[in-house]
C-alpha cells in the first residue's frame, strides 16, 4: 500500500516481509530462494554449499565495540554459520561517497582483515564504486559468502517441531542500543558496547555434541522478536517464551527504559538462537555456556503445537500475551 520505499521496509519487520513477498518473490521465485532462510543451500556433484549476501549501512560507521568493516565480515560469517556450514570465502563490494577520508577506509579495511582472520575466512574477490557527494551516506558495504555444509545436517527454519527447546546464546539488544545511544550524542554518553562477534566456532561446538539441531538463526535486524515469529511461521508451530528468562545487560535495559524501546525487537550482532530437540537441550546449554560467546546462554522457551505461527510471551506476572512483529523500526518515545 506504500507507493515509495520507507525506512521501515529495511527494518526486518512486517514491511520488509511484505516487500519480499510482493515485489521480489514474484520475479525471483525458485526453490532455493523461497525458503527465505539466512542462507541458500546449493548442491553440486554431492557437495552441499551455503551461499548468502548482506549489505551494511550502519550509522555511525564507527560505534562502541566495532565498525562497519567488522560488521560486514561477521554478519555474513554468522549468516553462513546458521546453516551449520564452515564459512570459507567472502566477496566484498564498497559503495563510497566522494570525499570519504581514505584514512577511515584504511581503518575499515584493517578491521575487515582482522575479522576475516578471526573467523578464518578469506576475502577472495571485491569491487569498489564511488558515487557523487550526497548520493550515499559515507560508505555502504555488501558482502557475500560461501560455506561448506556437511550432508548430515538439516538445519532450517522449516525444521522446527513441537516440544523443541529454544536456547538464546546471551544478552539481547547490545548492538542496537550501542548504535542508538552513540548516534544520539547530544543527550547520551553510554558505554553500551556492541556484541559484534563471529559465531562460526560456537556453532561447531554445538553441532559436535548435538548434530540433531533443528534450527539456528542470528537475530540481527528486528531482534529475537522477529526471528521467533519467522520460525513460528516457517514451521507453522506455536512458540511460548518467558519474559523473566531473557538475559539482558543492566545498562542496555536502562537505555531501553529511558527511550521507551522494547529490547525484544532490537538488533543483535553476536547472538544466536538454537532450536533443539528437548532431550538434548541441557547438554547443548552446558556446551554453549562453556564457550566464551555463550556464557550467558539460557533456555528462553519452547515450541508448542497450539496457536501455530504465533509467538506468545509469559509476562513477569504470569499472563500470556501475543508477541507480534512491529511494522518497522522502533522510534524513541516520550509517552
Amino acid at each position: 500500500n506504500h507507493k515509495t520505499i520507507q525506512l521501515a521496509h529495511g527494518a526486518g519487520g512486517l514491511l520488509s516481509m511484505n516487500l519480499i513477498n510482493e515485489v521480489f518473490l514474484p520475479y525471483f521465485s525458485n526453490e532455493s530462494l523461497n525458503r527465505l532462510d539466512d542462507f541458500a543451500l546449493l548442491y553440486s556433484d554431492n557437495k552441499k554449499l551455503a551461499f548468502t549476501t548482506d549489505s551494511y549501512v550502519v550509522d555511525p560507521i564507527f560505534f562502541p565495540g566495532g565498525d562497519i568493516g567488522e560488521l560486514a565480515i561477521y554478519g555474513t560469517v554468522n549468516d553462513l554459520s546458521m546453516s551449520g556450514g564452515v564459512p570459507l570465502w567472502i566477496s566484498v563490494s564498497f559503495i563510497i561517497e566522494e570525499g570519504f577520508p581514505i584514512d577511515d577506509l584504511k581503518i575499515i579495511a584493517q578491521s575487515m582483515k582482522r575479522a576475516s582472520d578471526r573467523s578464518n575466512v578469506r576475502i577472495v574477490t571485491g569491487d569498489t564504486k564511488v558515487v557523487p557527494r550526497g548520493a550515499c551516506d559515507k560508505i555502504f558495504i555488501n558482502t557475500s559468502g560461501i560455506a561448506k555444509v556437511s550432508q548430515k545436517y538439516s538445519i532450517s527454519g522449516y525444521n522446527i517441531k513441537a516440544g523443541d527447546q529454544i536456547i538464546l546464546s546471551g544478552t539481547i539488544a547490545d548492538h542496537g542500543m550501542a548504535v542508538m545511544t552513540s548516534r544520539n550524542n547530544l543527550s547520551f554518553e553510554s558505554e553500551i558496547c556492541s556484541d559484534l562477534s563471529p559465531l562460526n566456532d560456537l556453532v561447531q561446538c554445538i553441532l559436535n555434541i548435538c548434530p540433531e539441531v533443528h534450527a539456528f538463526r542470528d537475530p540481527t535486524r528486528g531482534g529475537i522478536g522477529v526471528t521467533l515469529n519467522e520460525f513460528a511461521r516457517q514451521s507453522q508451530v506455536g512458540i511460548v517464551i518467558r519474559d523473566n528468562k531473557i538475559p539482558i545487560h543492566e545498562n542496555v535495559r536502562g537505555a531501553c527504559e529511558v527511550l521507551g524501546i522494547d529490547p525484544y525487537f532490537v538488533a543483535n550482532e553476536g547472538k544466536l538462537i538454537a532450536v533443539v530437540p528437548n532431550m538434548y537441550s541441557e547438554k547443548v546449554l552446558d556446551a554453549m555456556r562453556d564457550h566464551p560467546l555463550g556464557k550467558d546462554s539460557a533456555i528462553i522457551g519452547e515450541v508448542v503445537s497450539n496457536h501455530p505461527s504465533t509467538v506468545v510471551i509469559t509476562t513477569l506476572l504470569g499472563v500470556k500475551q501475543i508477541l507480534d512483529i512491529p511494522a518497522g523500526d522502533q522510534l524513541p518515545r516520550i509517552c
Partner: peptide, 12 residues
C-alpha cells in the same frame, strides 16, 4: 546533571 540508569548516562 548527568543521570545514571544502571550504566547508561543521560544529560538531564
Amino acid at each position: 546533571g548527568r543521570v545514571d540508569y544502571s550504566g547508561t548516562i543521560a544529560k538531564v
